[in-house]
Amino acid sequence: MDWKVFLEQAPSGGMTYLGWLASGTLWTLLVSIFAWIIAFSLGSVLGVMRTTPLKVPYAIATAYVEVFRNVPLLVQMFLWYFVMPELVPERLGTYLKQDLPNLVELPFAQFSMWEFTAAVLCLGLYTASRVAEQVRAGILSLPRGQTNAGLAMGFTLAQVYRFVLVPMAFRIIIPPMTSEFLTIFKNSSTALTIGVIELTAQSRQISEYTFKTFEAFTAATLIYIVITLSVIFFMRWLEKRVSVPGYISQAAGH
């Protein structure tokens, strides 16, 4: 075993192989975080729609969840990256593939903005369907009395959601949301199939250049574990921080 390999100068990017790993980690985090913003906001709306008595929003949200959950993520990745630009008007397609402005200015990106955008879009919209199911489960787990009490107090349905159901449900679903974020974080590696050089791709690239496969994969694996553990600890802290006294005392237990 030869761990000094990471201190060697890499053939491109003007950095060591350690720098490649750092760059890969950064892209993994960027893809995950941007995708999570989409997944969390859209998923919350869809999840609420799945619990309302209103028929049309319910049907739309249900169709969304079924479509996005029943097609493999990798296939969706290819649909966004290869197929979507061909289906939109030609000028828009060309714009997407070639002229998308760099919103994230980072050194050492070996891929274009469209690869990054497609990956974020795909992961975000895919995970939104999973988040929606968690939000729905969280809202449905609340006693019916809470809705009824809210309505009896003269709240409109929208107000019941805004002031009663959603604040409670979001506290309940912190643990499943944590695992959804970790899922998006791990699934971000599928972006390598469309050319985003994130952590997994970077470790493979290092192994191809140096033939130190074991060292490269171990390093990437350790980075994944460290980030996973950090997220878990942060979310436990958050869960305690926002817990309502007397409710969901599992994590807040003294």
């Binding site: 970790l182 791990k186 699934n187 971000s188 590696s189 599928t190 390598l192 997994t200 470790s203 493979r204 192994s207 496969t213 074991f214 994969f217 990437a220 694996t221 994944y224 574990i225 996973t228 553990l229």
Partner: peptide, 17 residues
């Protein structure tokens, strides 16, 4: 816990190697 904390693709690469 190890398998569950790394991406599926990373695991495929590991066993492929």
């Amino acid at each position: 816990n190890l398998i569950r904390s790394i991406p599926f693709i990373m695991a495929i690469f590991w066993f492929y190697f």
